[in-house]
Each structure stands twice: as C-alpha cells, then as structure tokens.
Design a protein around this nucleic acid. Structure first.
Lengths: 140, 140
DNA sequence: CTACAATCTCTAGTCACTAGAGGAGCAAGT
DNA sequence: ACTTGCTCCTCTAGTGACTAGAGATTGTAG
C-alpha cells in the first residue's frame, strides 16, 4: 500500500503533474513503478524527494544544483561541505541580486516621480530611457 | 554618411551583434538599409533606439513592454500615462522581488549558519530542504 | 452503460537570447 | 595579385525550467 497516483503526489507535494513528469524526464526522480494500467505509483520516499525538490526550487537552486544535493542526501556519510558551498553560492547570488534590484528600484522611482503626467514629449520615463546620461547609477 | 556597421552599432550601443539581429527579427528595430554587399547600415536614430532598448532591458522591462514604450516614443503627442503605468508595474514587480529575495536570504543564512560542517547526515542545509516544517517563512 | 475525470505519450511553445555551421565581403600587408 | 584574418551574412538549434495541447487510454461514479 501507500502508493499514490501522480495527481495525489502533485497535491501532496505542491508540484504540478506535468512538472513531476518533467523531473522524471530530466533525472531528478527515478522512474516510479507502474500499475497494470501503466500509471505511475509514488511511495513515501518519492514524495519526500518531491518536496525536497520543490523547496529547493523555491529557494532558487537550479535543477543541476538540486541533482547534486539529492546525490548528497542519498549518501549521508559524506562531508557536507559541497552542500554547504552550494548554499553559500546561492546566498551570494541572492545578495547580489537584491543589490541590483535595489538600484533598479531607485532608478524606477526617480523616473516615475519625475513624470508630470503630460504627453510623451515631456515624459520623464521615456526621457530617462532615451538618454542614458540621466542615470545616476553607472553600473550599466 | 553617418551610417555604421552592425559591429560599430554594437560597440556604440552596448548591445551584442547577434542580439541586434534578434531585435530586428522580433520587430523592435525596423530592417535597416543594406550596402551593396548586403550589410546592414545603421543611422543615428537607429543607434538611439538601440540604446533605449538596452537601457530598458537593463531595467528589466520585457521586450513586449519595450515595444509599447517605443511606440509611445514614436508618437510624442499622446498622453504618457501608459508609459507611466508600465514603469509603475515594473517598479511593483521589482519591489516584490526584493521582498521575496530577502526572505530567501534569511532562510539561506539560517541554513548555512546552522551547518556544523560535519557529514550530510547532520547537515542543516539538507535537513532544512528535506523538512519544510523547519522554514520560518510560510510564504512557500 | 455512460459520462467524465485522470492519466498516458509526444510534440511544440515560452522568453530572450546564445552558439555554431558554412559561406561571402572587405581591408591591409606582402 | 594574393593571402590573411576580420567582420558580416543566413540559418538552425540549444538554453532552463517548465507549460500547453493533441489524441489516446484507463479508472470511477452514478
């Protein structure tokens, strides 16, 4: 017992049905056993794995990184430093992205606040986009 | 005079050569005139348009939004409120993304700090990913 | 028995490029 | 004139992580 259909697996894990099939296709999930009628049957371990994947994806880990993390999870005796470094790499990524987005936020706000809501001819939004010299952030 | 090659246009605008051709293909740029030897020739207006596109892309506007912004720029008599609302939409997007990334940052930091650098069996990174209940942020 | 939902496989589409093949044009040096 | 090497041309296919849809089959509730 305790085998569930793909639909049920989707409901439980929060991963959509086609996405589950996709994960199987790209090798994140091993091919599950089938019923006589050729339907996939998922057991508890598989469901956990799915939840793991969903969670990791939500944290922005790439599928490739997740593959490595899953490999590590499957071999609990190893050093966890690869997992640690993947997570650190991801954190650095996130921090950098936040920085860049904050710069964008500033610039967008300047554009919008400066707009006097008249015609395009005097639109600050268009103007800033046209003339890059008006940017305060030299990052781009 | 004043017509430049695609390579020169790329250098001036900061948009790569294949990307320029791509923009032409998807209709952001009109097809430029050609030399006898079939090479594209860009004039000043085209270069400005390219810079406009690059800048807008750097601010994260989608190609579709840029199409609209370019249309607006071409008709300067109109109200600028569509441009304004595209920019506001984009700003909201950015702000939301920052929020989400900050939550991720927190969670990644908790994962990493909690890791005692032993084996996978005790790895906090893997543990948190496996057991979603350990998340503080209920957003996912 | 008959709807209807859920599942199956397969292909193609998304976005904004990027990479590469295979060929032609062009400018400078020998 | 010739060669070297750069730029340019078109075209197709690949990226990541799915998503959408067609068309067929299976399972289930009334």
């Amino acid at each position: 017992m305790s085998g569930v259909s793909i639909g049920e697996a989707a409901r439980v894990s929060g991963v959509k049905v086609p996405t589950i099939r996709y994960y199987e296709q790209v090798g994140l999930l091993i091919e599950p056993p089938r019923t006589e009628g050729n339907r996939r049957v998922y057991d508890q371990a598989c469901l956990q794995r799915l939840t793991f994947i969903r969670h990791a994806r939500e944290l922005g880990f790439e599928v490739d990184a997740i593959r490595t993390l899953l490999d590590l999870q499957d071999n609990p005796g190893q050093s966890c430093s690869p997992a640690d470094s993947i997570a650190r790499q991801r954190l650095q990524d996130v921090v950098e992205r936040i920085e860049r987005l904050k710069a964008l936020q500033t610039e967008l706000e300047r554009m919008i606040v400066g707009c006097s809501h008249g015609t395009i001819a005097k639109c600050r939004v268009i103007e800033v986009l046209t003339d890059h010299g008006q940017c305060e952030h030299p990052t781009h």
